[in-house]
Design a protein around this nucleic acid. Structure first.
Length: 528
RNA sequence: GCGCCCGUAGCUCAGGGGAUAGAGCGCCGGCCUCCGGAGCCGGAAGCGCAGGUUCGAUUCCUGCCGGGCGCACCA
């Protein structure tokens, strides 16, 4: 006996629910699918159900047609649950951590970081809505070789601004923002570091610059609607001995060996094509080593699921990271890595070059200033993370129906306007869920309500697939149905009872739209 | 060469073991004495190629052909 599955057909002419059961039974029963379907249908009792009729169609599908008003059951539910409509209990409180952006605190946030910010924050929101207990975390790479390099660059600028000709290292940080930072430092503290011992001088400059850069990153992310629960410093792993502990554990378990003065992790034991250095011959741990200790720390904190959002250029890191987790005795399946493909900016049909070298380095800050938080977030999230993203700046800026963000927000504002009108004319707030929904007989009303009923299922799918683009699309489709309904029928009519029923319908739509927008981190404006 | 991701409408992308594959942009044609035209309605146009699994493949598997990204004692 195969599993009985019932699905919602794509085509509404095929009923509200359908099953392909008879096709699956055809072989074992040695009988034509349609014949099987007939037997099933003849033995199906409709009494006491919402099912109005059952039909056999196509190769043997059994289609169930519900009484038309069933969808309106959802309206009182939405009006009652309000901001909780759409919440589902998939996670049953399991602890999940989403780590995202984690950009080097040595510079500004670029488009890749921006996509990661929108994706990570939205995934976190969706998981929260799906019943998980979510922690948003930013890993600060404040240690290691790039910090050393950062120190050299800062020092060079410091000398330069004080009249000494010291070059910034070839592979150092050449950005204008670094010079600005040092200028600020000199304004406050003068030239006293000229006398300091070299390591001391660099340490002071790094300390100052890191704090400033990190503040800037926090501020930009906040303007982007992203708030973190935890800012985790890589340096604390070194200071607490966590890195050494983790290395010792790996060594005990025989996954570490020495070669050419460096320590290597046997990644090849876990299906990776080659081993990886964890401690360089100069004695300093690599980024990979810190990351192993960091992820071990995550599991020690009791997360049931650990989700990382990484750029495509880090995908090679996934297999060895999971290998390291296996080596440490953690469940590699509990570590999920969302790899996001690269972002390309387009303006006027032309690709906007984003290289540090050309100087046209577009930052998140500039993007938000240019197109606004809402458009930026929506565009970053409307595509699957494993698809390349062509970001059309002109479209994101357009204040017309061409822009999906305005299209959705306009639907929300439009409903608010209707509600205001109603309140003015009738002197009271919107109707409650007690309206007579039997009055809603138009096709566009039915379609709208049906879409509203889909929302919790969409949230569950989005959570299951870590796929925020599903919510983005859902919001757009829901807005479309609202606009369509609005254009063919009036909400406020001379018929009081009908008006109240329609008011309940649009109120429920407003609630659902707002909940979807909130998941995406967008505003739901009452006026535009 | 090896690994990961992607090939769906002119362009950018959703979707996904089933019955007529969706949206935006662009293109063509309609709709404002009426709750916000920042809107609506209609039209043309598509699953890279070849095998396999299956009652059924655009969806799963393999190969090929395109494209992106990795393959450091960088992160």
């Amino acid at each position: 006996m195969p599993e009985i599955t019932v699905e919602v057909p794509r085509e509404k002419d095929h009923g509200d629910f359908a099953t392909g059961l008879s096709m699956l039974l055809a072989r074992p029963a040695r009988m034509a699918p349609r014949k099987i379907a007939e037997i099933i249908v003849n033995n199906f009792s409709l009494t006491g159900t919402w099912v109005e009729r059952v039909e056999i169609a196509g190769p043997g599908f059994i289609n169930f047609y519900l009484k038309p008003n069933w969808v309106y059951l959802v309206l009182p539910l939405i009006l009652d649950r309000r901001e909780d409509y759409g919440r589902v209990d998939m996670g049953s409180g399991k602890k999940v951590q989403v780590e995202f952006v984690s950009a080097n605190p040595t510079g500004l946030l670029h488009m890749g970081n921006a996509r990661g910010a929108a994706l990570g924050d939205t995934i976190a929101s969706i998981l929260d809505y799906a019943g998980y207990s979510v922690t948003r975390e930013f890993y600060i790479n404040d240690s290691g070789k790039q910090i050393e390099n950062f120190g050299l660059s800062l020092e060079a600028r410091y000398f330069q601004l004080l009249g000494r000709d010291v070059p910034v290292p070839e592979d150092g940080y050449h950005g204008e923002d670094i010079t600005e930072t040092i200028r600020g430092f000199i304004d406050r503290y003068g030239d006293k570091l000229l006398q300091s011992e070299v390591l001391e001088r660099r340490a002071v400059l790094v300390e100052y610059a890191l704090a400033e850069k990190l503040e800037a990153i926090k501020r930009v992310l906040q303007d982007f609607g992203v708030r973190y629960d935890v800012w985790f410093s890589e340096r604390t792993l070194l200071e607490s001995g966590a890195i050494q502990d983790t290395l010792n554990l790996l060594r005990e378990r025989n996954y570490i060996y020495e070669n050419e003065g460096a320590l290597w992790f046997k990644a090849s034991d876990f299906g990776v094509d080659k081993d990886e250095v964890v401690v360089r011959s100069n004695g300093l741990p690599t980024y990979f080593m810190s990351d192993i200790a960091y992820h071990r720390n995550k599991f020690q904190r009791g997360f049931d699921r650990v989700i990382d959002i990484w750029g495509a250029d880090h995908h090679g890191h996934v297999a060895r990271m999971k290998g390291a987790m296996t080596a440490l005795g953690d469940d590699p399946a509990a570590l999920e890595v969302v790899i996001m493909q690269l972002v390309r900016l387009y303006q006027g049909g032309e690709l906007v070059r984003m290289s540090k070298r050309s100087g046209q380095f577009v930052t998140l800050e500039e993007l938000v200033e240019e197109v606004g938080k809402d458009a930026a977030r929506y565009f970053f999230v409307m595509r699957s993370s494993d698809s390349h993203l062509d970001f059309n700046l002109d479209l994101a800026k357009a204040e017309t129906n061409e822009n999906p963000v305005y299209y959705i927000q306009y639907a929300h504002a439009r409903i608010c306007s209707i509600l205001r009108q109603y309140a003015e004319q009738c002197g009271e707030g919107p109707a409650s869920g007690t309206a007579d929904f039997n009055l809603l007989r138009e096709e566009s009303e039915f379609a709208l309500a049906r879409k509203l009923a889909d929302f919790p299922g969409e949230v569950a799918s989005a959570a299951r697939g870590l796929a925020p683009q599903r919510i983005a699309r859902y919001a757009h489709e829901l807005a479309g149905l609202l606009h369509s309904f609005y254009n063919s029928h009036r909400v406020i009519t001379a018929d009081q009872a009908l008006s109240e029923a329609r008011l309940a319908l649009v109120s429920a739509t407003r609630i659902t739209l707002r909940n979807a927008l909130q998941l995406l981190g967008l505003d739901a404006p009452e006026r535009m």
